[in-house]
Design a protein around this nucleic acid. Structure first.
Length: 419
DNA sequence: CACCGTCAAGTCGCA
DNA sequence: TGCGACTTGACGGTG
């Protein structure tokens, strides 16, 4: 079983993907951006290896404007060497990569041009996976698409258009229930017709399910399991929690560890891959991996603590002390308590006065290095923030710059500037 | 350098 | 008929 995250990586600015707009398009610029993005991907893969994250969704944005006619750059040739080295890393570390074409990729649209463009987009996704020499266990997840005021016909169109796809794409595609139109019943029905795997998404299911189906989510996961064949690899599901309330499909800031563990336990040790959909991405992936690992060593929690500690300190002195106490006994592995306290700190919205206190606190780390000009600048920014003339982020950004300049490692390696 | 409107693409629901 | 939500961050023009 693997737990993974989607596309974006937190905690390192060099792993950010860049893009290009039509207005400013040039081949040269595009090539530079692709190179930058592949290097970012490389760093993300390294991070995933280091943190034992074996499941990862590649961003569709690695190649900007990938299926747009303006882009005629043969990037698969230009970056062949880079792709080869990436593919080795992925393979040697048995990472399963997947992709998820976006909301505009619709093979069941009644409009021909929409379908044609969608097929081009699917071809792009397949091509990228091929460049990385991924086998057919590397899947592309697709939603069914629109309803177009006639669901039955829209489903038929999906099935008919699927049958016309390139067999390579057919072997990669898996289908997922969505939060508005197609329930898990609909998706299982389509799967029964075209014989491809089904991804169960728990949050979409909660927001959109048929009243007739009395099965609970774990029984449905079992049902979906039957759609996965040997050559498809392990069954994959999407797991997320909603940000605020049951009406909203927006994903939560972080995974609540109690809820996750309860869900996980009800899976009864089934060997399936869980793709997390959550705003804090890799952070929640590591959390969920540690919450469920058999390898219960306190050093993993200590490593996590090193990343979180300055943020927690800036947010809650009390929680900071609690965790220090918690990690004293080196023979234990208090993972649930640990993340419980972290989550508590993350949920605290600091008042301005407390924010200023914590900014002052962080400033303490540079005091020794910073010159008079930098000191002046910091306090002027702080003052502007106090008077609502500047945002909190502008002060934080300045401190981040100082961290880079003076290479204050413990702050650069911490999540203080990223969460 | 901070701020903020805008960005390739589709569909749906609602004013 | 047209616009915001979906979900999202990054680009890049502006002041």
């Amino acid at each position: 079983m693997s737990i993974g995250y989607a596309c974006i990586h937190l905690g390192d600015n060099e792993t950010k993907f860049s893009t290009i707009y039509l207005k400013n398009y040039s081949d040269q610029k595009l090539i530079e951006i692709i190179e930058k993005n592949l290097n970012a991907l490389d760093k993300i893969i390294d991070y995933n290896i280091k943190n034992n994250i074996k499941l990862f969704r590649l961003s569709s944005d690695i190649i900007p404007l990938a299926s747009h006619p303006i882009n005629t750059v043969p990037w698969w040739d230009i970056f062949e060497e880079k792709f080869n080295s990436l593919s080795k890393k992925i393979k040697n570390n048995t990472i399963r990569v997947t992709m998820h074409p976006g909301q505009y990729t619709l093979i069941n649209s009644p409009k021909n041009d929409v379908v044609e463009k969608s097929i081009l987009d699917l071809e792009y996704h397949n091509r990228l996976l091929k460049c990385l020499k991924c086998d057919y266990k590397s899947k592309m997840v697709l939603h069914i698409g629109g309803v177009y005021s006639d669901k039955k016909t829209a489903i038929e169109r999906f099935i008919e258009n699927f049958k016309k796809l390139n067999p390579e794409i057919q072997k990669r595609l898996i289908i997922e229930n969505d939060d508005k139109s197609y329930t898990i019943d609909d998706v299982l029905f389509i799967s029964s017709k075209i014989n491809i795997p089904v991804v169960f998404d728990n949050l979409h299911h909660r927001l959109n399910h048929s009243q007739n189906n009395k099965l609970n989510e774990f029984e449905l996961i079992d049902l979906c399991n039957k759609s996965w064949k040997e050559e498809d690899g392990k069954q994959k599901i999407h797991y997320s929690q909603s940000a605020n309330n049951y009406q909203n499909g927006a994903h939560s800031k972080t995974i609540n560890s109690q809820k996750f563990v309860s869900f996980y336990n009800q899976l009864n040790n089934k060997d399936i891959d869980i793709m997390l959909e959550v705003k804090d991405k890799n952070l929640s992936a590591i959390k969920c991996i540690l919450l469920t690992t058999e390898d219960k060593k306190i050093k993993y929690l200590e490593k996590e603590w090193a990343k979180y500690k300055y943020y927690i300190l800036s947010n809650s002195q009390q929680n900071y002390e609690k965790i220090r106490e918690l990690l004293k006994d080196k023979t234990k592995f208090p993972v649930k308590e640990f993340y419980g306290i972290i989550e508590n700190s993350l949920s605290i919205e600091l008042k301005k006065k407390a924010q200023i206190n914590s900014l002052n606190h962080v400033w303490g780390y540079y005091k020794k290095f910073a010159d008079e000009k930098e000191k002046k600048k910091f306090f002027s920014l702080l003052n502007s923030y106090q008077e609502d003339k500047k945002t909190l982020n502008s002060v934080k950004n300045y401190l981040f710059k100082l961290s880079l300049k003076y290479n204050v490692e413990y702050l650069l390696n911490s999540l203080y500037f990223y969460i």
